[in-house]
Design a protein around this nucleic acid. Structure first.
Length: 357
DNA sequence: TAATCGTGGTC
DNA sequence: TGACCAAGATT
């Protein structure tokens, strides 16, 4: 297929994409794409939100679970917020789950269930920032939007040999990308650069010899393509410590409370805990607390050592406001809380049936 | 603007 | 083992 309407960089990337695009559940296949079929905006939006700072491998099964349970934006909008949080548990960045549900409600109620087809309107939706707005516009609607994610930023920094840190070179990168960006197949071009970044133009040890953009790449012409993009040094991660209390009833259930709607683990169910975030819970009432050991967890900006206390609920105990009993082994909670609950369960079981040393 | 916000995989 | 990294948004 001749594609003379494209600049050479775009033509080469698109040709490569036509032969090598990753098969992903939120995309349409090559034959459907050739027939002019576009992907479902709902699925594009959902995948883009899930993929924010999250790997394809992690998203794949979660995306399948979401679209199976909620096949349309209307279905998602009609869901209970708690069910959305439950499906999101373990995915991280929990503000995304809240904004996802808010966005679904806006689209379903105010926009008749139809996603906007322009960057500007998409940008107004909750949880949709500059990247996601451009990605949806380009991929779902083939609008001419310049899509810049971490992959494309890296590919561009190498293609144009941009020496300054990407933080300060953002406008320059956008300008240079604009010059080679096609006027149609914008979504495919964006995804071609993302696939290139994920499979060939990787952060470490890029496979320049097999790259379709090798002939155009200023970094590849130099002696160390991997030195682009330049990144500032990361700040050190401080240590924090706290306590969590796992109160069990007699039937393998554990007491959970809901975290405040904003901030760390916002809106998610969790063990009562204190001392490590800006929110402290009071310890529940137990006849006696036993030290169940501790767990470690690494967040984006600190490391946490959480001391876990395990106890049994007093007979006839009544739940206070916001407290619930949940099956300890299967409760939908953030990973740090899953570790803590598992630690408490292990402690309880080791006490009940000591294993041989 | 810079800080905040999770988690799992890789080398 | 620890540092880096992944289809960023919000305030």
């Amino acid at each position: 297929m001749k594609q003379n309407r494209f600049k050479r960089q775009a033509r080469d990337a698109l040709d490569w994409y036509d032969a090598n695009a990753r098969d992903l559940p939120w995309r349409v296949g090559p034959s459907a794409r050739a027939a002019g079929l576009r992907p479902d905006p709902y699925r594009v939006w959902l995948s883009e939100v899930m993929l924010q700072q999250t790997t394809v491998a992690t998203v794949r099964p979660r995306f399948a679970a979401f679209v199976s349970r909620w096949p349309s934006v209307g279905a998602l909008a009609a869901a209970a917020e708690d069910d959305v949080f439950g499906e999101w548990a373990g995915l991280g960045y929990y503000a995304r789950a809240r904004n996802l549900h808010r966005c679904a409600k806006v689209v379903a109620s105010d926009l008749n269930g139809v996603f906007p087809d322009t960057e500007e309107k998409l940008l107004a939706l909750p949880g949709v920032g500059p990247y996601t707005a451009a990605a949806i516009a380009a991929i779902a609607f083939d609008a001419r939007a310049i899509v810049i994610d971490g992959n494309i930023e890296r590919v561009a920094a190498r293609l144009f040999a941009i020496d300054r840190p990407v933080r300060v070179a953002k406008a320059d990168i956008r300008e240079r990308l604009d010059r080679i960006w096609p006027n149609d197949r914008c979504g495919d071009f964006a995804q071609s650069l993302m696939d290139l970044g994920a499979t060939i133009c990787t952060p470490r040890k890029p496979s320049c010899p097999i790259c379709p953009l090798n002939d155009h790449c200023l970094a590849a012409a130099g002696d160390d393509p991997a030195r682009y993009p330049t990144k500032p040094a990361k700040p050190v991660r401080p240590d924090r410590a706290g306590a969590a209390w796992a109160l069990f009833d007699g039937r393998d259930r554990v007491l959970l409370v809901r975290r405040p709607p904003k901030g760390l683990l916002g809106g998610m169910m969790a063990l009562p805990s204190a001392g490590w975030s800006d929110h402290d819970d009071a310890p529940p009432a137990a006849a006696q607390w036993k030290d169940a050991g501790s767990i470690e967890h690494v967040f984006t900006h600190f490391r946490l050592t959480l001391t876990v206390h395990a106890g049994a609920a007093p007979k006839g105990m009544r739940l206070r406001e916001g407290e619930v009993w949940a099956d300890a082994a299967s409760a939908a909670v953030p990973t740090v809380m899953r570790k803590a609950i598992d630690r408490a369960i292990a402690h309880r079981d080791s006490r009940n049936s000591p294993s041989p040393a």
